[in-house]
Structure formats: structure tokens, C-alpha cells
């Protein structure tokens, strides 16, 4: 395959050699694609909640409300990041079975997973996860309900800002609503491989 490398590079050089000039790298205002009108003057946590609703995700500002929502849906067994559970446990109370270890052999036992988010993007209603913040990738993905704990100060206004802040983490994932498909006759179905219910708990 070293041969393939040399062959490809030499074909690329050969293909480009006849060009008298190359297309320049355009310079542009990074804000070009930002939905300014939507963001201007808004409280970012409020805007985030509003935009999440639009992609059929939910935002809460109290842990007790999340616990009520889970109970109402019958999702009482789940996983929680061990670093978060001490603060959350008092709001959940009895009636919940919560593990702070995720056993991949029993992936279907967890109806919900609670992990920390690295941030969020208000403009698009997006939750930002990364390897540093997420205790287990699987716990944020496999359960039917995912609850991401988002710090108010970590909400970006727009995607351009979020790209600029990608940082050094080896894996960053933006989650905009629940997992979905429209493959069967164009009908929208939520919860294909990932969560069918996506929640942000803004703290």
C-alpha cells in the first residue's frame, strides 16, 4: 500500500499540474451562517429549550422535574454517571433503581442514562458530548432515554462558536434531538439505534 500512496500522490500532482491557477481559499466572515436574528438578545438557556422542543427533545431546569418525567413514562431503572449521582439522588427518591456502573451485557436493562454534557448550542437545540464529560459512551446512547446535564455557562449561542471550541478532545458529538429515521415511506420514527427520548437538564 506504500505503492498506492505514491501512485495516488503522483496522479494528484499530475492532475493538478496543468491548472494555470488554483482556486483561492475564500476569506469570509465566520458569522455568515449564524442565525443572528434568532439569537439576538435572547437568554441562551431559554433559546436552547425552545430549539430543543422544535427537534422533539426536552429541556428541564430541575432534577425533580426530570425524575417526575421518568416516573410518568415508566422509566425507573437506569444508569447515572457516578460523579453526578450524589447530587441527583435526593431528587429521585424511592421507586428508582439506579446503577453507577454500566454493564454492556445487560444493555437492555437500562431504560435511562444520565451523563454530563460538555456544553450545548442554543441556535440548533444541540447537546455537546465529548469523551472527557461522558462517563460512558454507551450509557449516553443505548438506553431509551438520555439525560444530559448541561451547565448554563457552557451553552454556546451558535454552531460557529461550537466549532471554534471543539478543543483537544478526541471525540466530540453533537446531539440534536432523539435518534430518528424516515427510511420507511418517509414516515418519521424516533429511537432507531440511539435514544427515543433526549433530555437536557440545565443546571
Amino acid at each position: 500500500m506504500t505503492d498506492d500512496r505514491e501512485a495516488i500522490f503522483s496522479r494528484v500532482r499530475g492532475a493538478l499540474a496543468p491548472l494555470r491557477e488554483r482556486a483561492p481559499l475564500p476569506q469570509y466572515d465566520a458569522d455568515m451562517a449564524v442565525l443572528r436574528k434568532m439569537i439576538a438578545g435572547r437568554d441562551l438557556a431559554e433559546l436552547l429549550a425552545e430549539r430543543m422542543k422544535r427537534v422533539s427533545a426536552h429541556a428541564y431546569t430541575s432534577a425533580a422535574a426530570v425524575a417526575d418525567f421518568l416516573k410518568a413514562g415508566g422509566w425507573t431503572r437506569g444508569y447515572c454517571d457516578p460523579a453526578l449521582w450524589p447530587q441527583l439522588a435526593p431528587h429521585f427518591g424511592a421507586g428508582f433503581t439506579v446503577e453507577t456502573d454500566f454493564d454492556r451485557k445487560r444493555v437492555d436493562d437500562y431504560a435511562f442514562g444520565i451523563t454530563r454534557a460538555a456544553g450545548a448550542v442554543a441556535e440548533s437545540g444541540t447537546i455537546v458530548l465529548n469523551d472527557a464529560a461522558t462517563s460512558r459512551r454507551l450509557a449516553a446512547l443505548a438506553p431509551w432515554v438520555h439525560i444530559a446535564v448541561v451547565e448554563r455557562a457552557a451553552i454556546f449561542s451558535d454552531l460557529t462558536q461550537a466549532v471554534a471550541a471543539l478543543g483537544q478532545d478526541r471525540n466530540v458529538i453533537w446531539v440534536t434531538g432523539p435518534s430518528k429515521t424516515a427510511d420507511v415511506e418517509g414516515i418519521l420514527i424516533e429511537g432507531v439505534h440511539g435514544p427515543g427520548v433526549q433530555i437536557a437538564l440545565i443546571v
Binding site: S124, N171, W174, T176
Partner: peptide, 11 residues
């Protein structure tokens, strides 16, 4: 869609 549901950056 404003944005696809999962946008993953892998380095």
C-alpha cells in the same frame, strides 16, 4: 433539518 441529529468529530 437545521442539523443532522448526530454530528460526530473524531480525531
Amino acid at each position: 433539518q437545521d442539523l443532522t441529529v448526530y454530528t460526530e468529530f473524531i480525531s
